[in-house]
């Protein structure tokens, strides 16, 4: 479904791989090795050699914003630019209850949310676009164990229900074991490893 061909990150050999629909591929490796740059290249946030396609639709076939609605990148730390939660959501089909929020959450002030609440809201905000591919850049890096499990469950459920694919970057090997379908890409060895 997602086909990454010959993406070239400075200092690394070109990277190519393919994901089948519904697959969650893990990525592990030390910080600074290029994991974030790989995800940014797939989301078309940086200029990079190589090509990325979903089935027959490639990056350059659609505008940058249309591509990023389908290939959604979730950074470790989310950014918020309005005072309250509500204006960050343009769609009204958001299921806040699925993440353990009441409808009251729309009136919350963003500065008063905990990092766990912010990350769960950031995921709801991202999923509102109904993306076909999720790029998760250490999505639970700032969360405690309980919140991490909630995030894992929500994303796994989305992938199953929508037959969407994901690339999950994590330092935590136990987490990768839980969420990854069958294999992960080890950046330090530049090789695919079966879980």
């Amino acid at each position: 479904m997602l086909k990454v061909s010959e993406i070239t990150i400075p200092g690394l050999a070109p990277i190519s791989f393919e994901l089948v629909a519904g697959e969650c591929l893990g990525i592990s490796g030390e910080s600074g090795c290029g994991k974030t740059r790989l995800l940014r290249a797939i989301a078309d946030m940086d200029e990079m050699d190589g090509s990325v396609c979903i089935d027959s639709l490639c990056q350059q076939d659609v505008s940058g914003s249309d591509w990023r609605k389908q290939v959604a990148l979730l950074p470790a730390e989310s950014q918020w630019w309005f005072d309250t939660v509500a204006p960050h959501f343009s769609e009204d089909n958001v299921d806040f209850a699925s993440m353990g929020f009441s409808d009251e959450v729309m009136n919350w002030s963003v500065t008063r949310c905990s990092s766990g609440e912010k990350q769960r809201l950031a995921i709801l905000r991202l999923l509102a676009n109904r993306p076909k591919v999720l790029l998760l850049d250490e999505p639970t890096a700032n969360l405690d164990a309980e919140n991490s499990r909630k995030v894992e469950a929500l994303i796994t459920e989305y992938l199953v229900n929508n037959n969407a694919s994901a690339i999950w970057v994590s330092h935590n090997h136990d987490q990768l074991q839980r969420v990854v379908s069958e294999r992960y890409f080890d950046f330090s060895r530049a090789a695919m490893v079966s879980i």
Partner: peptide
């Protein structure tokens, strides 16, 4: 100063014009 916010908005599928509106 707000480049992280602008990029976040782009990642959510906003166009450049939308991401810099405010």
């Amino acid at each position: 100063q707000q480049r992280a916010v602008i990029e976040q908005r782009l990642m959510l599928g906003q166009t450049a014009v939308e991401a810099i509106r405010e």
